[in-house]
């Protein structure tokens, strides 16, 4: 009970009601929506989830990672590999996936933090590890090498092996996104969360008031990597294929960072708002691109939209939106 109270804490009743209604709507959505809209909603939830995971590191603890594809890729490959080679289902496989990503995160974090790399230098280290792994997977037979790893497409619902149609995957990613939201709220409202914010603002001052900086940063990267690995597992079973060129690509890492940056770093609703906006824009521009029949035109519109957002709302859309709606998320 006290846990629930801590979670809801000083959130206004308006926010709680809105969240409740949103959850109910999302729960019944598959019954109301057609195939296309369901697939769009699945994408929104996926980006909201990985965005939330990345936000723990950057938005909360202030450590810029541009290599999160590493954790998603590792997670996906391990769960998919265990399933296709040994028939080990993803619910068991995800433990291995999460553990591997957590260890990878711990290695990257320990090296980066121990050698006090900050800002761009730390970001480049994360990119380097991700790229390094990409080339390694290109040459790893077990994982299918550069030819890719494929799962047999099977739409008969089999929850044990996470096989089935979009509705199954929708509910799984909804549960993950909702869980991550609650987890992040709980973390923010804890001592650890406050310590992260302090580190983000000024690590030296934080350490002087007793914050064990290295340990807190390590916890941030391990939690973030573990959650991202879950997204990778889901992704692998949803799409049924994995290629090193895409799974570990820098583009994949960048994709993970966009929703929280656009939505508002360090806020709980930022990754969700960002995911809605980015997925929405992506869909609109895809249609537009198909109508115009010019290669790259979709991405050009996308680039323009990013440019406009970063120029006029550099702190993200959510803080501004919340202000307009009178729903100010209390800035801790």
């Amino acid at each position: 009970m006290s846990f629930v109270k801590r979670l809801t804490g000083d959130a206004s009743p308006r926010i709680l009601w809105s969240l409740g209604i949103l959850l109910v709507l999302l729960l019944v959505a598959p019954m109301m929506l057609g195939k296309y809209w369901l697939s769009v909603l699945i994408l929104v939830l996926y980006f909201a989830f990985v965005g939330q995971a990345w936000n723990i590191m950057m938005g909360f603890a202030g450590q810029l990672s541009l290599g999160h594809a590493l954790y998603a890729g590792l997670g996906g490959y391990i769960a998919a590999g265990l399933y296709s080679h040994y028939g080990i289902g993803p619910w068991a496989g995800l433990f291995a996936a999460v553990a591997a990503a957590g260890v990878a995160g711990a290695i990257v974090g320990y090296l980066g933090f121990r050698f006090s790399l900050a800002g761009v230098y730390f970001a480049l280290l994360t990119i380097a590890f991700s790229e390094f792994t990409r080339v390694a997977f290109d040459h790893w037979e077990w994982a299918g090498g550069s030819g890719g790893l494929f799962l047999k497409v099977d739409t008969t619902t089999d929850i044990v092996n996470l096989r089935g149609g979009p509705v199954l995957f929708y509910y799984v990613i909804l549960a993950l996104a909702a869980g991550a939201f609650v987890l992040c709220r709980a973390l923010l409202e804890s001592r650890l969360g406050r310590y992260w914010l302090a580190i983000r603002e000024d690590a030296e001052a934080a350490q002087a008031v007793g914050v064990p900086v290295l340990r807190c940063k390590m916890i941030a990267i391990v939690i973030s990597a573990a959650l991202t690995a879950l997204a990778g597992v889901w992704n692998a079973f949803y799409y049924n294929n994995l290629f090193p060129e895409t799974a570990f690509a820098m583009g994949r890492s960048i994709e993970i960072t966009l929703a929280p940056i656009i939505g508002g770093l360090g806020t709980l609703f930022g990754p969700i708002v960002g995911a809605v906006v980015l997925t929405g824009l992506g869909e609109i521009f895809t249609d537009l691109g198909e109508a115009l029949r010019i290669p790259g035109i979709k991405q050009i519109f996308y680039g323009l939209a990013l440019l406009v957002i970063v120029m006029y709302r550099p702190a993200g859309l959510w803080p501004w939106l919340a202000d307009k709606l009178g729903l100010k998320e209390r800035q801790p």
Partner: peptide, 14 residues
């Protein structure tokens, strides 16, 4: 070295 982006109360709370 204040935690600039946090409120005065949260600074001291840390």
């Amino acid at each position: 070295k204040p935690f600039k982006g946090l409120s005065v109360l949260e600074n001291v709370t840390v």
